[in-house]
Simulated assay, not measured.
Amino acid sequence: MNKKVQFSDLGVRDYKDTWEFQEKLFQEILDIKIRNRREELSLETPNHLLFVEHPHVYTLGKSGDIDNLLINEKQLEVKGATFYKINRGGDITYHGPGQLVGYPILDLENFFTDIHKYLRFLEEVIIKVMADYGLKGTRSDGETGVWLDVGTPFARKICAMGVRASRWVTMHGFALNVNSDLGYFDNIVPCGIRGKMVASLNAELKVDKVDEEEVKQKVLKYFAELFEAEIVSKKIETLHL
């Protein structure tokens, strides 16, 4: 089992370009697994973890309801935002500046073959990061992601999650609001859940800006610990393979 994870911080990148790049990495792993099975080989499958920040964009999961997007095409244009229907689980969410988006593209057969456990591990990574900042991140029954003040009228989501998996290979991932403009969430019913708010780390800490590099290092640390992975940094200049 290959527990090395090639890590790349892509910086600010267009959503569609990054999605296509994910698909290429995802397919590369699938192709190796299919070849291994057909030819009775044991070629090693790679694992990847991408960090990225997207310009304003709304994405709707395959089981999502388009009615949860509350603005039309012209209003999207005015707000400088784009919209995509995509192939992850979950409903609608927002990505934008000040948000840390993480895309683990893993062969879970290198770790464990349990999607439920995988999602709980991703949540636990963020819960541990929140604890480092003095915040109590928790899970909400039936609502994937990380929340604050669950069980109160002030429940709010600070990290959304949605994944796709095939043959135990994952893609898509999590979006942690670090220094996000939460006003952009007013244009959607976040994750299709009505009556609940969203949160950002800087707003919770009552500071203008949280050090995003520090947050990234904490996420990497806990990701490596929980998945018992070896993180190997890899610089990527272009998303075209």
Rank of each mutant, 00 (worst) to 15 (best):
M1E: 08
K3H: 12
K3D: 02
Q6V: 12
V12F: 14
Y15E: 03
K16T: 08
K24L: 13
K24F: 09
F26G: 11
I32N: 06
R35H: 13
N36L: 12
L41R: 08
P46I: 06
H48D: 02
L50F: 15
F51D: 02
E53K: 05
E53F: 06
G61C: 02
K62M: 13
S63I: 03
S63C: 02
D65M: 00
D65G: 01
L69P: 05
L69F: 10
I71F: 03
N72Q: 08
K74W: 10
L76R: 11
V78Y: 13
F83N: 11
F83T: 11
I86N: 13
I92Y: 08
Y94G: 01
H95V: 08
P97N: 02
G98W: 05
G98S: 03
L106G: 01
D114V: 12
I115F: 11
L122N: 05
E124Y: 03
V125K: 02
V125N: 06
I127M: 14
L135H: 11
L135M: 12
G137C: 09
G142V: 06
W147I: 00
W147R: 01
C159H: 02
M161Q: 14
M161I: 15
V163T: 15
R164Q: 15
N179H: 00
G183M: 00
D186Y: 06
V189K: 08
P190V: 09
V198S: 05
A199C: 03
S200G: 09
L201S: 04
N202H: 14
V210Q: 01
E213N: 13
F223H: 09
E230W: 04
E230H: 07
I231Y: 07
K235L: 12
E237Q: 11
L239K: 12
L241F: 15
